[in-house]
Simulated scan of single mutants.
Amino acid sequence: MPVHNVHERLLPMRAAEVGDLLDTLSGGASDRLWPHQAWPAMEFDRPLSAGAAGGHGPVRYTVAAYVPGTWVRFTFSGPRGFHGFHEYAVLPVDDEHTMLRHTLSMRVSGIARLSWPLAYRWLHDALLEDSLDRAGHRRHRARWTMYVRFLRALAR
Score class of each variant (00 low, 15 high):
1 M>D: 11
3 V>Q: 01
3 V>G: 04
4 H>K: 07
7 H>Q: 13
7 H>F: 13
8 E>F: 09
8 E>I: 05
12 P>F: 09
14 R>Q: 15
15 A>K: 05
18 V>G: 03
20 D>V: 05
20 D>T: 13
21 L>F: 13
23 D>S: 09
24 T>R: 12
28 G>R: 13
29 A>E: 14
32 R>K: 14
34 W>N: 07
43 E>L: 13
43 E>Q: 14
44 F>S: 07
47 P>V: 15
48 L>R: 08
49 S>A: 14
50 A>M: 02
52 A>E: 03
53 A>E: 08
58 P>K: 08
63 V>S: 05
66 Y>L: 10
67 V>Y: 07
70 T>H: 14
77 S>T: 15
80 R>D: 14
80 R>P: 02
83 H>A: 09
86 H>S: 01
86 H>F: 03
86 H>N: 02
87 E>R: 08
87 E>H: 11
92 P>V: 03
93 V>K: 10
93 V>A: 06
94 D>R: 01
94 D>A: 04
98 T>K: 01
101 R>K: 11
102 H>V: 11
104 L>D: 07
105 S>H: 15
109 S>F: 09
111 I>Y: 12
115 S>R: 00
116 W>R: 02
118 L>V: 00
121 R>W: 13
125 D>G: 10
129 E>L: 07
132 L>K: 12
133 D>C: 08
133 D>V: 01
134 R>S: 04
135 A>Q: 11
135 A>N: 11
136 G>V: 05
138 R>W: 07
139 R>A: 11
143 R>W: 12
144 W>L: 06
145 T>D: 13
147 Y>K: 11
147 Y>G: 05
154 L>Y: 10
